[in-house]
Simulated assay, not measured.
Amino acid sequence: MKPLKLPCYCGSIRQASRVVTQMYDKALKPSGVKITQFSILRLLSRFPGLTTGEMAEALVMDSTTLTRTLKIIHDSKWIASTPGEDKRERHWALTGEGQARLQEAVPLWKSAQKEFAEKMSGVDLDELTQSVFQLVQKSTEAVD
């Protein structure tokens, strides 16, 4: 069966999200990194020492999903944690192996970016990105 055009904004965006995730995961496969892991590695490379809560907020992820992904990355020895002032709090940073894995994945991610841009030719991707970000901002402001 072919994909259905859904009359629901949420359903349509979820369909698109799954397609884009699959495309990026396929491109990143040689590095062993999934796009969800890549986003976390990249975030920690720019902002080492973030807590789980800070990462969840920055990535707009629920903490349970983030915690599962952090465990996988931690078990792979790509990240390490140190305790915070509150013993339950953890600060995360890339390990040397995580930095190497990220460096291996970046060119593959750039290739996925290029593939996405080619598939979306005729669409103003800067405008699309800005529109999606506005939705994220408005949605997270409503929660605060």
Score class of each variant (00 low, 15 high):
53 G>M: 09
100 A>L: 11
61 M>Y: 14
40 I>H: 00
49 G>V: 05
29 K>Y: 08
83 P>C: 06
129 T>W: 07
62 D>P: 04
49 G>T: 10
1 M>W: 04
16 A>S: 08
51 T>L: 03
101 R>Q: 13
17 S>F: 06
127 E>D: 15
142 A>S: 02
82 T>S: 13
117 A>T: 02
23 M>W: 06
101 R>C: 04
99 Q>W: 05
92 W>E: 02
60 V>R: 13
15 Q>E: 03
75 D>C: 01
121 S>N: 06
111 S>P: 00
73 I>H: 00
24 Y>F: 15
36 T>P: 01
93 A>T: 08
32 G>H: 12
72 I>G: 00
2 K>F: 12
92 W>F: 14
104 E>H: 08
56 A>H: 07
8 C>V: 06
72 I>R: 04
102 L>Q: 02
31 S>F: 02
118 E>F: 04
85 E>A: 12
23 M>G: 04
36 T>N: 14
104 E>M: 09
113 Q>E: 15
40 I>Y: 00
110 K>R: 15
35 I>G: 00
140 T>D: 02
8 C>R: 10
53 G>E: 15
115 E>C: 03
73 I>T: 11
142 A>V: 00
93 A>Y: 01
25 D>P: 05
32 G>E: 05
66 L>M: 07
64 T>F: 07
25 D>I: 06
114 K>T: 12
108 L>A: 04
73 I>W: 01
17 S>Y: 05
99 Q>F: 12
46 R>K: 15
119 K>R: 15
97 E>S: 14
50 L>E: 08
121 S>K: 14
141 E>R: 02
117 A>E: 06
98 G>D: 04
143 V>S: 00
